[in-house]
């Protein structure tokens, strides 16, 4: 499979990355190089193979429904680039 500049633009949109024209060309080349390498996997028939998400055989890791203290609200926004009171401020959405 190969990836076009248009694909790169679409992926950049999904990933919320603004790319320059030069970057689009560069990423198209670089991604194609890596993806070409990925095609080796197609040599394997995996139709009967279960995918591995967890290497350990884990299941049912739960917590009890018990309240623990939350953060001090003033600490919540301590690293915020823009804030108002204890809330985060973001530019207009539409």
């Amino acid at each position: 499979m190969s990836i076009s500049k248009k694909d790169v633009e679409h992926v950049a949109l999904l990933a919320r990355l603004a790319l320059t024209e030069e970057e689009k060309v560069l990423y198209t080349e670089e991604l194609n190089a890596v993806l070409g390498f990925m095609d080796t996997l197609n040599q394997l028939d995996t139709s009967e193979i279960e995918p591995t998400t967890h290497v350990l055989d884990i299941k049912n890791v739960f917590r009890d429904d018990e309240v623990a203290p939350s953060m001090d609200p003033s600490q919540v926004v301590i690293n915020a680039p823009a804030k108002k009171g204890n809330q985060f401020r973001v530019p207009k959405i539409m």
Partner: peptide
Amino acid sequence: KTKTKIFCSCSTEFGKAPNSHVCPVCL
């Protein structure tokens, strides 16, 4: 209507002061 959030132990109580029921996990 659980007492706590789905993935952390913060309270689910409605109508509290902004960002008073958050922790590193839900944040």
